[in-house]
Simulated assay, not measured.
Amino acid sequence: MSNLTQVAIEIGIENLDVFDIHSPQWQTFCDSNDALFERVITAKPDKAHTHHLLGVLTKAHIEALSRVEKHHDAVQAMHQALEQNVGSHHQNNFHYQDGEQLAFVTHAWLYVQGYLGMDFSLANDHANSSAQALKVNQEVDAQALRSQFMASFYQGKEQGNAHLSHKKSSHPILEWFKKRFH
């Protein structure tokens, strides 16, 4: 298991409703970012690994969003050609991998933002930009998609708060002993 996957599991990301640690999207993300994650950990070992995960997901989100926006016209033409040639009922058999990757990375990225207690309005803006980009290339309701993305943010926030309260519930003397004798 990669460090990237291990850190994601440590923060409970596998409990995210739309997340599957064994999915092709996660494997694609790990294949593209494992080496970077390892370099960042080595370069800045004093920083929390969750912050490194956030940075790698930020980079992945920017790249995925850029690909979706860049190929907007070609994807629309492909959807139109599929609908005309195979019919709308068969069109669902074809998958837009860049769009699926953007959605997946957005969910994971917003989860980590929530986990780290980051700003709601910034997360909402990012959720909206991803939803708008995906709306153009897929026939989806952008508001519903934005709400799904924000649900991931709130799930992360809930998990992060639970982690903090568990950490705070330990007795200070017990924590001192753990630090001294660990």
Rank of each mutant, 00 (worst) to 15 (best):
V56R: 09
Q97S: 13
T106G: 07
G99L: 06
N85L: 07
H182T: 07
F104S: 04
W176D: 09
H51M: 11
V112D: 02
V75H: 13
V140Y: 10
E100H: 13
S130D: 06
L82G: 05
F120S: 01
A81N: 03
Y115Q: 00
M118T: 08
G160C: 07
R146G: 03
A81F: 07
G160K: 05
D119F: 02
R67L: 14
K157T: 05
F153Q: 00
A43F: 00
P45R: 01
P172L: 08
S169N: 14
I13N: 00
S2H: 04
S130G: 14
H49Y: 11
I11L: 05
H79K: 09
H107G: 05
P45K: 02
D125K: 13
V105W: 09
L164Q: 15
E175T: 14
N15E: 06
F181Q: 11
N92V: 11
H51T: 13
L16K: 00
E14V: 04
L36D: 06
S147R: 12
S23L: 01
S170V: 15
H166Y: 08
N92G: 08
N33H: 11
A35F: 12
P45A: 04
H107Y: 11
H166S: 15
L110D: 01
T50R: 08
H182K: 12
K59N: 13
Q80L: 10
G12C: 03
D34G: 00
G55Y: 08
N85Y: 00
L122R: 06
G99A: 06
V136P: 00
E69V: 05
L53V: 07
D34F: 03
A123T: 01
N93K: 11
Y115L: 00
A144E: 12
F177I: 13
M150A: 04
A123R: 02
T106P: 04
F29S: 02
Q91G: 00
F29A: 01
G12T: 04
R39G: 09
Y111S: 09
H71A: 15
F181M: 12
A74E: 14
F94S: 04
H51W: 12
S23R: 01
S130F: 06
K178E: 11
P172Y: 02
K44N: 08
V86T: 09
D20F: 05
S152L: 05
F29L: 07
Q159P: 02
L164A: 14
R67T: 10
R67A: 15
K135D: 11
R39T: 09
A43E: 07
